[in-house]
Write a protein that binds this DNA or RNA. Structure first.
Lengths: 154, 154
DNA sequence: GTTGAAAGAAAAGTAGG
DNA sequence: CCTACTTTTCTTTCAAC
């Protein structure tokens, strides 16, 4: 599990932009032949640099046009409660991201739903059905400026 | 650009989990033969349901272990300033996400960097070099509970 | 690291039901 | 929608340098 050289980084940059890039294309872009490119990609997968390959779907097309961040505070910080809350989050498909935060509140979660009505339903019927939550504050997204999955390596 | 049926949804769910799933595998999972599966995938790409295929890289392995959310307020909300700020964000590779928010502040951005020292450098030398920013508040992530790119369709 | 070759798989297209 | 077949391309492995 050695460090990445410039060629590895170029490969990772390319695959982060388009994972369908073929070994052949990669090879001409990074300037080495297909065999070592193939071996490098396999190594990057094996060593865990590449976690997985996914298709990114347009949120508007699948009716998830409303994004809301929720700042959640728990009633207590007992390990039991933290665990219960985290498991609750893992089970909610509307929750795309969930972070344990330092500061004035405990968790920041990113929720993506169809519209405001669905969001209300989510908060009332799903989010707050676990009794470990004390307080929720919703921050509404009006517009998306940037949304990246790529870490540019250099 | 018609609506999705159950088969389309199954295909999208699968490709969101693993975009390397072959037409053959998809075909046995959704119960139709390879040719129509192939055509459905092409249609989903063409109609924009699938935006792109990407490799997801492990943030720890590429030295982006610190995640910080910044609540940014602008000095004024003149169109010119909004535009300048947004372009500034697009040019910063540490900024993974940027949202225009309703509420007490103007933008929420997700920044991923190596460590606290790098974050300080980012704030001082990069984020706040545009004169349209009035105020920045940093919210630090202690732990990641969930991080999803998949919209489960049903 | 490189090249080239080769077997196997998958993608992409075609034809007929 | 199905099966079946074809061509092309890519993946994967291997031998040799």
């Amino acid at each position: 599990m050695s460090k990445l050289d410039q060629i590895d980084k170029k490969i990772l940059n390319r695959l982060q932009e388009d994972s369908r890039t073929t070994t052949k294309e990669l090879s001409s872009e990074v300037g080495i032949s297909t065999t070592p490119v193939y071996e490098r990609v396999k190594r990057l997968e094996k060593d865990g640099y590449i976690k997985k390959y996914v298709a990114l779907v347009d949120k508007d097309k699948v009716e998830r046009e409303l994004t809301v961040f929720c700042q959640v505070s728990l009633k207590s910080h007992l390990k039991k409660n933290i665990q219960q809350f985290q498991e609750h989050m893992l089970g909610l498909p509307e929750v795309m991201e969930c972070y344990h935060m330092a500061g004035n509140f405990d968790y920041l979660i990113k929720v993506m739903v169809r519209n405001m009505k669905e969001y209300q339903k989510f908060v009332v019927e799903k989010l707050t059905t676990t009794d470990v939550i004390d307080h929720v504050q919703s921050l509404f997204v009006m517009g998306e400026v940037k949304q990246e999955t790529k870490f540019p390596l250099k």
